[in-house]
Amino acid sequence: MISENSAVGRQFLDDELRRAIESYFPRYPHRQAALLPALHLVHQRFGFIPREAIVELADFLGIHPAEVADVVSFYSFFKQDRPVGKYRIWVCRSLSCACRGGEGLLELLTQKLGVAPGQTTVDGLFTLEAAECLGACDCAPAVMVNDKLYGPMTPEKAEQLLEELRAAPAPEVTS
């Protein structure tokens, strides 16, 4: 598929990652279908999808890098420019949360962290994200930090959460 080279580098997709991706192959009738799980693995490893990793992944799955990038750019979960912070904070702003103060919460965190939604703080600790419905409307307004849900939040609780996260050791990302 990739015209100019068969010797695509292996700096991003090392053997471990390749094995992990390969373990998904039996689930699907063709390799391209393993793209989304593979992207999750890459994102988990690097905190974003590096451009070179796209090329290597495309080579591994037997498709063109453009077909990978096409999918990557569609999903709002994947970052392409730089790694996400240690804590990725999703603030739900959908109706159930918004009507109970989700928008205010997002604004508060924007001010507290000094970054706009989608950006990462300079110290690389926090990435703030505006989420479209986290599916946690029963604990609105909801906030998700990496893979843990918090809610119902109040401005006070949110500030407290930030403090706790700042003080806490590195999180265990389980998924």
Binding site: R27, Y28, Q32, A33, L35, E67, V71, Y75, S76, F77
Partner: peptide, 27 residues
């Protein structure tokens, strides 16, 4: 049975979008 996880796109809940997503294409 296999679990296939999305990546933050509402349209994947539409049945044919869901199929395209599993196929590794733009949903």
């Amino acid at each position: 049975i296999f679990v296939h996880r999305g990546a933050g796109a509402y349209i994947c809940g539409e049945e044919t979008g869901l199929l395209a997503s599993i196929e590794g294409k733009r949903p």
